[in-house]
Design a binder for these strands. Structure first.
Lengths: 356, 356
DNA sequence: AACCCTTATTCAAACGTTTGAACCTCTTGA
DNA sequence: TCAAGAGGTTCAAACGTTTGAATAAGGGTT
């Protein structure tokens, strides 16, 4: 069929096949307003020919001419972090009804890849960009180019409003508070805390929330039971960190009946670490995580956790992005804001009521 | 800077800025062969202007003119299945050095989405397509259009060589055999088996491998200990199936000391199900899974499993795809084959030596 | 002084669409 | 008989690149 150099069926092929001009065919197939004036018989003929030949409009030619790519870049720092996937799916579901194509890229926690993909997003003329919480992001010099090209940007999991970037985060302080309060309500008093790594913005507010809950209950947190995760090199280092800290915790010979872990993977790590000393979860020690990623639900016992509404956050990010594009189109400006979404306690088997 | 309608910086902008023609600028920036003849001073000037203005070539215009998109479609049936991500990352790593842009799409096990994305891949003029094991794929009528447009296709996790589609699978029979043999070697004799759902191609060969191992050891499999997963509606139904089957297994009052689960999520489900009856893994019952997905490594105890070399498989799929594109370009044909990759036993805590 | 070669740059056509304007051919009403 | 309108279709320019061919200016060689 397609005797073209490119090997693709073009409008011209269809036009020839039904002995019409390219214009008419284009008008019919793209359902332009003018297509009302095209005789129904012609319309039919064109559509049939197109289907028969297997014609699909060339997005490149179309976007070039229309000066719109109908594309939104989605840059995830690492898809193998189970945290990313629900966000991505939320984003997808958010842009799909608006007829945007999500240009999904996975930087695999590699700096070079991140920059490479960022450049591609620019070259592909993405009309917006949604970034999933990457620490690299702030440093990239391509950011300036994005701004020069007037691409609206949203970031999930960081606050970059000071750089005119829409930002979405979970209310970490509230989350930390919920976690701690729950353990206290269950009757735990000697509670170990694993703080997040220094360089993560989430660490501090979660810790603040934990202290607030303790204060509110009039309970002192034993400083010897407070630990800190080292930096996160890859998606699994949270788990490994958890294992190690559990061992340190045991070595410290302090007594404790519960652990607030920085996130779910850390919680899973702690569970593994405690197992080595034959300490059973939840009978001997309760554990609570944060995020509610998939592996937390699949382990036995399931990890009680503070859920981030990830799909919903992705959806909102997508919404903001498409709104910003629309606003920019019609010359208006779109407000850059910081949204906090509300975390929620999910009770599972890793926590249990405690009486000394 | 960019006073264009499109809001983007174009070659023309750069050309004006350094008082040269568009051609010269293009030649310099795209490092065309002719750029040798361009005076070094001019080159320098052009590069600087481009950088200063934040110029990035328009992929649409470029692809249109070059008649190449340098893009490969990657269609995953559901990213929230932890099975997909390592494959995707392997594919990424495979196409990246060849300078292709992976167009990653996640069908979220939804038929409409699958078709939608397939159409987009066609319209985006992807030069190749890599599909991750989707049962929907065989049915789609867009397949014919892909063929009309001469797009080479590879599929991971299915054998579609009869439809001229390169196929990559793990050696399921070998995998099943490895799993069963390992349990037998550990001394287990009363082994329950959870077969995969009927509609999955992997189910039958794994079961065959399991039987082969049993026969080789002269051990009979008790039919009352053989179960079958119902169809998989979503990535989590393996887990839920596992929980239910564990309950049925307990209700059957048969004695058993080990379970071969169809995959890791099923294994995790079984672990959860047994817990309800206070049966401990691995002390009272060993469990072995299949795939080696992330949650299997994170649970406590870790799930012993048969590993599929997913990253490597993704890499090979990518390699085949880029090779096929190259071949097609130079008019040659590329052989359509079926590759089997070799699974590997990963020993973790969920299995243990058994003596009656 | 005519020739060719080299170096440095530009012309202009093409890629496959879309779309405002133009073009026909009827019909209708004055 | 003519103008106005409507219905149906096409013209041609444009989007931002790339690239084969053309141009121009200098510098040897004969």
């Amino acid at each position: 069929m397609a005797q073209h150099k490119s090997g693709h069926v073009t409008l011209l092929d269809v036009a020839k096949a039904c002995e019409l001009s390219v214009s008419t065919v284009s008008i019919v197939l793209s359902e332009a307003p003018l297509s009302q004036n095209v005789a129904p018989a012609t319309r039919q003929k064109v559509r049939e020919a197109a289907k028969r030949l297997g014609y699909h409009p060339d997005a490149y030619a179309r976007s070039l001419r229309r000066r719109r790519s109908h594309t939104i870049g989605v840059l995830a720092y690492d898809l193998s972090d189970p945290f990313c996937v629900p966000l991505v799916q939320g984003i997808q579901n958010g842009v799909e009804p608006e007829n945007y194509l999500p240009l999904l890229m996975d930087a695999q926690t590699k700096r070079e890849l991140f920059d490479r993909y960022m450049k591609m997003i620019l070259e592909q003329r993405a009309e917006g960009l949604i970034v999933i919480a990457s620490w690299v992001f702030e440093e990239t010099n391509l950011l300036a180019d994005l701004e020069k090209n007037h691409v609206p940007i949203v970031i999930l999991g960081r606050d970059l409003t000071h750089r005119k970037i829409g930002s979405l985060m979970v209310d970490n302080e509230l989350g930390g508070m919920l976690a701690m309060r729950y353990l206290l309500e269950l009757g735990h008093r000697r509670i170990a805390v694993i703080r997040g790594p220094q360089e993560m913005v989430d660490s501090e507010p979660r810790w603040a929330g934990i202290r607030r809950a303790a204060e509110a209950a009039g309970v002192k947190i034993n400083p010897k039971l407070v630990f800190q995760l080292p930096g996160l090199a890859n998606p699994l280092s949270g788990f490994e960190g958890g294992v190690e800290i559990a061992q340190k915790l045991l070595a410290s010979r302090q007594t404790f009946s519960a652990v607030v872990a920085f996130d779910d993977l850390t919680a899973l790590g702690v569970m593994r670490g405690l197992r080595g000393a034959n300490i059973k979860v939840p009978e001997d020690c309760s554990i609570i995580g944060f995020d509610d990623v998939m592996p937390a639900a699949l382990s036995t016992p399931g990890i009680t956790t503070i859920r981030q509404p990830l799909e919903e956050m992705g959806l909102r990010a997508a919404k903001w992005c498409t709104d910003a594009i629309r606003a920019h189109e019609s010359g208006k400006s779109h407000p850059v804001e910081l949204w906090n979404s509300v975390p929620e306690l999910i009770e599972r088997g890793s926590t249990v009521r405690w009486t000394e």
